[in-house]
């Protein structure tokens, strides 16, 4: 009885899950951060490398002293709102 009930519950849950996937999977989630909400991201202090000339130089220093290279990250940044 218990097994049966659990089986039914499982079937129902899977049916709901499939329904959700089928209905929801047809459309991408909508962008959840609107353009007018990106003030903080556009602040220069949110750049990974705020000043390209300086950031590149520091990458250069590390590259010359270390065996590792690549994927240092770049300049630019913010949210591209400018």
């Amino acid at each position: 009885m218990f097994v049966n009930a659990t089986g039914q519950t499982l079937k129902t849950a899977i049916a709901y899950l499939l329904l959700t996937v089928v209905l929801g999977g047809c459309s991408m989630p909508k962008p959840w951060v609107k353009p007018y909400e990106r003030n903080n991201l556009a602040d220069p202090i949110m750049s990974f490398d705020r000043d390209g000339v300086e950031g590149s130089y520091m990458h250069h220093v590390h590259q010359a002293r270390e065996g590792a290279r690549g994927a240092e990250g770049g300049s630019g940044g913010g949210c591209g709102c400018n």
């Binding site: 990974f48 390209g52 630019g76 913010g78 591209g80």
Partner: peptide, 10 residues
């Protein structure tokens, strides 16, 4: 690092 990645965020 100086040029290619200047567009890394947007």
């Amino acid at each position: 690092s100086l040029f290619v990645s200047t567009s890394s965020i947007a």
